[in-house]
Design a protein around this nucleic acid. Structure first.
Lengths: 223, 223
DNA sequence: ACAAACCCTTACGCAAGCGTTAGGGTTATC
DNA sequence: GATAACCCTAACGCTTGCGTAAGGGTTTGT
């Protein structure tokens, strides 16, 4: 992975619902929202399918709603669709994308895997694995293998980063002592208080070796 | 930061010295290699400048040597120079870049800061800060501020990644139980053992809620 | 003098993950 | 029926950190 993650900023808008898209009205087969959660516990083992279908009967989200709920941009959602990570549940007459609430879970899933260092393509391949699997347990086995690898990579990264964090911290403590340094004294000694050697010869940390994160500054520079 | 780090692979060549560039010969003011390290301890506080100048009298490295010693490519070194992170100590008559051994420290410094999530531009700005500082202590103060910020960012990243690592690990354990699942039983129950509900209704983890990293698979898919 | 290894500069290429127009419909509200 | 606020598709743009030629010298050894 290239560098550290800079997390996306959440959208600024307030209202989580759009101008009442797909509102509960008669004639529309896609609207009986509510109660699903209350019924689920019983239906759970009896028929997960009914449970799931009910979930889809809930109010649908426009792409903007989905984006806001996930802290993504509309463009990002479109992009995910383009690379095969997501598909709208339906389209309105005007070809507006309409998503079920489960799309939120999907987008968050994408987000997390991405934070875990996978590319969108990698993630797509996971979906492909899952879809091509002959049975659910088979699919899960394959997913598990991928996750397993990722876990190893993440742990490696964590170790590296932890070491670097310590180094950085140590360097900061080293630099703290520089504050007690009087430029005039250095000038007296070296003529030019800015000279690279002024620091490495400063008496405040004679014993301490200069940390690499500090030494690099006055090493073979561009100066 | 975009994703996780994939560390560069070290070069394959064996010999760390090139075909004897800038060999100790007469007439060349840049060659008295050796002894420097032995003299240094005494000169250290007396005159850091002499110490440093001696270091530069050591044998010089060609760009290929430098690259190999740092696990970078020649192209990368060139690039660092292009963005103002590094400059050859000298050039040969034929315009070959010749670096002092301290360039190694510089490149490693660049590498570490990069791993810590800074862009090359960020790193260049650190150098600029240092060079523009009126005195060494002043410079160090500015550097410290930058490092301080970085430390905070890195720690944030570590926390996020640690949480995600746990989630991933938990998901793996959840998936382990899938292995004990018999596709035939699922088929008997759902007709299609691959159906998304087959897994979420599997009796093996009735109580356990499905981890997000698993739920995302069969949520609002591209299927 | 010639080959093997290097090195030089210039400049286009590339992967990722969206950002950003550009031009043009759609929905819901007033 | 006129807005405002959204949404659609298509497609080029951008950033980072080099990779990869392309065309041509330089060093060193034999």
């Amino acid at each position: 992975m290239p560098e550290l993650h800079r997390l996306p900023i959440l959208g600024g808008r307030t209202a989580p619902v759009s101008r009442a898209v797909a509102e509960p009205g008669q004639g529309d087969p896609l609207s009986v929202a509510g109660a699903a959660a209350a019924v689920a516990p019983i239906a759970y083992l009896d028929d997960g399918r009914a449970h799931r279908e009910e979930a889809q009967r809930e109010e649908l989200l426009q792409v903007g709603d989905l984006a806001r709920e996930c802290g993504k941009t509309v463009r990002a959602i479109h992009h995910y669709e383009a690379v095969g990570l997501l598909k709208p549940h339906t389209r309105s007459k005007g070809r507006y994308r309409l998503y079920g609430r489960d799309a939120i879970a999907r987008v968050r899933w994408i987000h997390k895997l991405h934070e875990l260092g996978m590319t969108l393509t990698d993630i797509q391949e996971i979906l492909a694995l899952w879809e091509r699997a002959p049975s659910a347990p088979d699919g899960m086995r394959e997913i598990r293998a991928v996750y397993h690898q990722r876990l190893a990579a993440v742990r490696e990264q964590l170790e590296r980063l932890t070491l670097l964090e310590r180094e950085l911290f140590a360097s900061l403590r080293y630099l703290d002592t520089c504050d007690t340094c009087d430029p005039n004294l250095l000038t007296a000694r070296f003529g030019d208080a800015h000279h690279a050697d002024a620091c490495s010869s400063c008496t405040h940390h004679v014993e301490e070796p200069e940390p690499e994160l500090v030494a690099g500054l006055h090493a073979g520079g561009h100066t």
